[in-house]
Simulated scan of single mutants.
Amino acid sequence: MEKAKVYFTDFRCRPGKNNLQKLQKLCKKAGIERINFEGKFVAIKMHFGELGCLASLRPQYVKAVADLVKELGGRPFLTDCNTLYPGSRKHALEHLDCANLNGYNTVTTGCQIIIGDGLRGTDEVEVPVKNGEYVEKAKIGRAIMDADVFISLAHFKGHEMTGFGGAIKNIGMGCGSRAGKMEQHSSGKPKVDESKCKNCHRCAQECGSDAITYENNVAHIHEDLCKGCGRCIGACAFDAIETVEWDANEKLDRKMAEYAQAVCQDRPCFHINLVMDVSPNCDCHAENDAPILPDIGMFASFDPVALDQACADACMKAAPMPNSQLSDNLAKPDWHHHHDHFLDSNPNVDWKTTLEHAEKIGLGTREYELVCVR
């Protein structure tokens, strides 16, 4: 496979030009105009951030991309899928409220928001994965698969489980329905915290496997019947159900790459990463720690693997920020120096596995040519 082209621009702005204009110019230089947008529904997949997180992308950047899509004749909408864990984005109503409170709405972004997997996280499409080794059929939010064109707009940052969160994380994990997220995160079955169960029977009504019964006014999940879809987690309003068996990071990384393959295969796609506010952990946290690295710039490509590799390489060349999780770790006298900013920030991760497996299954290539745009 020949090298992919990844386009880059920094955040420097001379008088008369701003970063929103630079972002649109970057996308055009990267070839976004080669996609036929005319009259097409365009899913712009992003992360709205958990309530309390201030590191997610500013809505002005989102509007710049949406405006460009409209300029090219497309019909853009913002999308993300509901979360597996309790928080402020567990169902569509919470998710939309969270997006609005975090600054994303029709006024600030210029387009509508559609939660990809519906009200309860159960509106999904099973998509066969080309060259999949771990996932036969990925469970993707229906609205995302209904789109004619797919654009990933990702905040590139550190991540406590996958090393970093970039395009592949934004696509693979982010586009999975609740069942899809369960499949990627865990091979186990959910459990009931009896002290929190309120005997409401909502989980049993949602279960498609008749795996939940009530004993002594408390829900009980029968593992022999449970398919591990995680729908009961979303159905419980009291956070009484959770998954307790998490797959090893390497397996999670590979499944995530295969889910990204399912989303991107057989339709026009374009990918954008903004390497700024590089927090050590995911925007799923209800807080964001100080950035571990300085703001680097904006990257765009048709190849999500090359894009993430280029962003990771740029991060490795940057100096750690003082008074950050990364610099604190490096200052410890007994610290084992990994010479890898993501590993030194979160030492139990293995970010290269995602890119290696994504390249292996044909999602893209790790070999790239970096084209600088001024």
Rank of each mutant, 00 (worst) to 15 (best):
M1Q: 09
K3D: 01
K5H: 07
K5P: 00
F8Q: 05
D10H: 05
F11D: 03
R12I: 11
C13P: 01
G16N: 12
K17E: 15
N18D: 15
L20H: 12
Q21E: 15
K22S: 13
K25H: 13
L26I: 09
A30Q: 07
A30P: 09
I32Q: 07
I32Y: 00
E33F: 06
K40C: 11
V42T: 15
V42Y: 06
A43I: 05
A43H: 05
M46V: 10
G52W: 02
C53L: 07
V65L: 13
V65E: 05
V69S: 12
G73C: 13
R75M: 15
R75F: 15
F77G: 10
T79V: 05
D80N: 11
D80M: 06
S88Q: 00
S88T: 12
K90R: 10
H91A: 00
A92F: 00
L93V: 13
H95F: 10
N100F: 01
L101G: 02
N102D: 03
G103D: 04
N105C: 09
T108K: 06
T122D: 13
E124M: 09
G132W: 04
G132S: 03
V135C: 03
E136H: 07
G141D: 04
I144M: 12
I144H: 06
A147P: 04
K157T: 14
E160W: 12
T162C: 14
F164T: 03
F164R: 02
M173N: 05
G174N: 04
G180F: 10
M182E: 12
E183I: 06
H185T: 02
S187Q: 11
R202A: 09
C203S: 01
G208F: 00
S209R: 11
A211R: 05
T213Q: 11
N216I: 02
N217T: 08
I221Y: 07
D224V: 10
K227S: 14
C229W: 10
G230W: 02
I233A: 07
G234P: 03
A235C: 08
C236N: 03
A237P: 08
I241A: 01
V244R: 10
V244M: 08
D247V: 00
N249S: 08
Q265R: 12
C269R: 11
H271L: 05
N273A: 07
P280Q: 09
N281V: 14
N281W: 15
I292T: 15
I292P: 04
L293R: 03
P294H: 13
L307E: 09
D308M: 11
D308L: 11
Q309V: 15
A314R: 11
C315L: 08
M321S: 12
S324E: 08
L326E: 04
S327V: 02
L343H: 09
L343W: 00
S345Q: 13
P347W: 14
W351G: 08
K352H: 13
E356I: 14
H357G: 04
K360N: 06
K360H: 14
K360A: 13
L363I: 06
E369R: 08
C372I: 09
